[in-house]
């Protein structure tokens, strides 16, 4: 059966997509925690510009990001020159290149839930921890992080699912290599263009169910978290 969900091409695309989303989430979570903590506590004048910079991928068309990445990662681009000097070659058309693109693209989705969670804590829990002689890192790990738990979970789920839905950036820097840079969304697009509507239906339907399940879980989690806090 080559015209179903389980054709080799589709299976490979699903595998690459899940791998991409998992790795992106693992890389982004620590970065997002650190940046969200800084953003929710700092009084630096850099706060506003950095906040804007981080939110950019939310409003920019993915083609803008894809276009600049293509220029940056190419052998004549600044990033391409660095990766070549390190002997890594160019990142375009590689899985690592997609990871880099996804990390940038999903950054606001990872940071915002955590930032909101940290901001809603206020300064009180950390002050109480300090009066109990907890060192700042200790207080952060054992007070702030557990209390921001629902934000962390939302962040992880959003990052993962947003990466799975990524399309424009992958299309522009991927090169459609099976097992490397061919992901679910681009695979659906190619099926539609090649008039393989049965295959497109299978994948698109699976995506629809998956996305609904993710959002449903997310709203259940948020309700539970709200009940625990109040």
């Amino acid at each position: 059966m080559t015209d179903t969900l389980l054709s080799t091409g589709n299976l490979l695309a699903i595998w690459v997509t899940l791998k991409l989303a998992s790795i992106t989430t693992l890389i982004l979570l620590p970065i997002a925690i650190a940046l969200a903590w800084w953003l929710s506590n700092t009084r630096s004048i850099l706060r506003a510009p950095i906040n804007a910079l981080i939110t950019l991928p939310l409003v920019l068309p993915p083609t803008v990001l894809g276009f600049y990445l293509l220029l940056l990662m190419g052998p004549n681009g600044p990033l391409g020159e660095v990766t070549q000097a390190l002997g890594l070659g160019s990142l375009s058309f590689t899985f690592s290149g997609l990871v880099l693109g996804s990390v940038l693209y999903s950054l606001p989705f990872a940071i915002q839930p955590i930032q909101i969670a940290f901001e809603s804590l206020g300064s009180r829990p950390m002050e109480v921890a300090a009066t109990l002689r907890a060192k700042p890192l200790d207080a952060f790990m054992n007070v702030a992080l557990p209390m921001a738990r629902s934000g962390l979970i939302s962040s992880a789920i959003l990052t993962f699912s947003h990466t799975i839905g990524e399309f424009g950036v992958v299309l522009m820097i991927g090169g459609n290599i099976p097992g490397q840079t061919q992901v679910l969304s681009t695979q659906i697009y190619n099926h539609v263009e090649a008039m393989e509507y049965t295959q497109a239906h299978w994948l698109a339907g699976a995506m629809l169910i998956f996305s609904f399940a993710v959002l449903f879980t997310l709203s259940l989690l948020n309700r539970r978290a709200a009940r625990i806090i109040h």
């Binding site: 293509l70 990662m73 190419g74 058309f93 522009m172 263009e193």
Partner: peptide
């Protein structure tokens, strides 16, 4: 692979 010949051209023109 470029999605069409225009994108293929762009891959080469940007030296990727």
């Amino acid at each position: 692979q470029g999605e069409n010949i225009g994108q293929t051209f762009q891959f080469i023109a940007t030296a990727n």
